[in-house]
Each structure stands twice: as C-alpha cells, then as structure tokens.
Design a binder for these strands. Structure first.
Lengths: 146, 146
DNA sequence: TATTGTTATACTCTATAACTATA
DNA sequence: TATAGTTATAGAGTATAACAATA
C-alpha cells in the first residue's frame, strides 16, 4: 500500500489533477481543429470501431447518451459523421465517419501521438509503458465491459 | 514510447477517465459530510499546511482564486474555517482551520485512506507504489512549484 | 507597477426527470 | 416491460474581464 504522505500526493488527487492536465495538453490542437474534447473522442473512437450505436459509443467514451445527442448533431451538421437508422433494429441509429470525417480523424490521430509523446516525455520509455499498463489494469477493474 | 494501440488505451484518455472515476469513488463519503470535492481539498490541505493565503491554496489544489472565494465563504459560514487579514501584508487573508474544522479534516483524512485503498485494490502494493511515483514524477514536471 | 482578493458573468460539462419509438 | 434515442432543464466546475485595496 502507498503511504498516505499528504493529500497532494494521494494517488486519487494526482489522477484527477493529471487527467485535467492531459486534457489541457490537447486543448490547443483541438481548438485549431474547432473540436471539443468530446467531439474528438467521438471521431477517434469511430475511426477504430467503424460502426457504432449511440449507446455503445456513450459507454466507450463515458459521455452520457443524452449529452451525446447535441455533440453528434454538430458533427453530422459539419459533414463529419453519418447517422442512419439500423434496419435490423429500428430504435438504433448507427454512426459512421464520412469520408472527410475519416480524414479529419486521421489528422487528429497523428496530432494526438505527438501530444501524448510530449506529455509523457518526463518519463522514460519503460516508465511510460508501466504507467499505461497500470492505468489499463485499474480501468479494467473499475469499468468492466470496456 | 507507448504504442498507440487505440484511442481508448491512450495514456491521456486513461488519465482523464481514471481521474473522474477516482472522484466518483469519494462522492458518497463527501456527500455524507455535506462537502464538495473542492471543500474537501481545502480542508485536507489546510490540515497539513496550517496557515495559507488564498493565492497559495489556489495553486496547491488547482482551483482558481476567484472560484475559491465562494468555497471559502461557505466553509467560514459553517464554522470550519477561520479567515483573517495578515498583519504583515494586509492584502493577504490567512486561512486556518477552526477546532471543529480540524476535527472534520481528521475524519475526512481517515475516510480518504479507506477509499484510496479500495480504489487501488486491483493493483498489488508494489504496483500502487509504482503508480503513485510515476504520477508524482509527471506532475512535478508539468506543474513546477508544486 | 505588481499582487491579493473580489464581483459579475458566461461557458462547458454533467446530471435529474420525463418523453417517443421501437423491441 | 425493457431498450435506444431524445428533449428540456438545472447544476457543477471553469474561464474572461474588470475592479478595490495594498504593497
């Protein structure tokens, strides 16, 4: 167990703090693309998962379905996203990237790699791997199904 | 460097996600005490740093000074916090815990240990130490002076 | 002139309740 | 009855601009 040295060095506090700092490290790039963090998450997720219902997307990026609606509509309005009723279950609305949405997602993915590299640069490559693995373990335990 | 396997396993995304999850793990306890996360951070920080100006406190817990004002006033109104002008620099207003504020902070600190232990329980003690150390390194690099 | 604290205000993110349509 | 999506709305949390008091 980790010794409770002080509030500021508690792991929970550091996670919240660094999560916020990581978000800020993307801010400039996202603003250049005219995207919010959630819009960015939608594009990058669909880039990998091809076709997804709004419910499933909601779970993956941890944004409530009702809050996802205006985000999706904005991306559709900008021609980045395509939304169509699932013929096999007409309640569902399947999301896919349009051609220009896919191109935008590719550019975002490239930029994200550079930003992540910069953000993690205070750690050695081995430490970066360790950190990623520890976080994935922790997430898997607390967020089963994702 | 960490391989960019997918957006959902990027370290930046995981940090933001786990920061949010860590916050939720405190939620129930904080609600029992009738405190917001920021109020909690104020009490726990003053528990360790005795006496602090609002500016310094703001830096430590990463809450903007202007947003700290109503938080502090709420705690003063509830008798948990004492705020007094610094006689050596009359611009500053020194914050200290009252007796009952100190007692509340002690209870919070005990509860926080249990919550942190539970949250980190999917990791071995050695992994918990590693994670804490990696996060502290990363924070120190990105948040110099804290 | 710079710093500490403050107000008013706006914006983003998240959450509560309730609804439509399909299954 | 349960699920996918939606609407309206309220609440946190955070950020922009400008100010008063003191150094």
């Amino acid at each position: 167990m980790v010794e409770q040295l002080s509030f500021e060095s508690a792991t929970g506090f550091l996670l919240a703090r660094l999560g916020s700092m990581a978000g800020r490290s993307w801010q400039g790039m996202l603003r250049e693309h005219g995207l919010s963090p959630h819009e960015h998450a939608v594009l990058l997720t669909l880039r990998e998962r091809q076709e997804l219902g709004q419910r499933a997307l909601s779970r993956v990026i941890a944004v409530d379905p009702r809050n996802l609606v205006p985000i999706i509509e904005g991306l559709v309005a900008r021609g980045l996203l395509h939304r169509a009723v699932d013929p096999t279950d007409r309640r569902r609305r399947l999301l896919t990237l349009t051609r220009i949405g896919g191109e935008a997602a590719d550019r975002l993915a490239r930029a994200a790699i550079a930003i992540e590299r910069q953000f993690l640069s205070p750690l050695t490559p081995e430490q970066q791997r360790q950190l990623n693995q520890l976080l994935r373990t922790l997430r898997a335990a607390h967020d089963p199904g994702n």
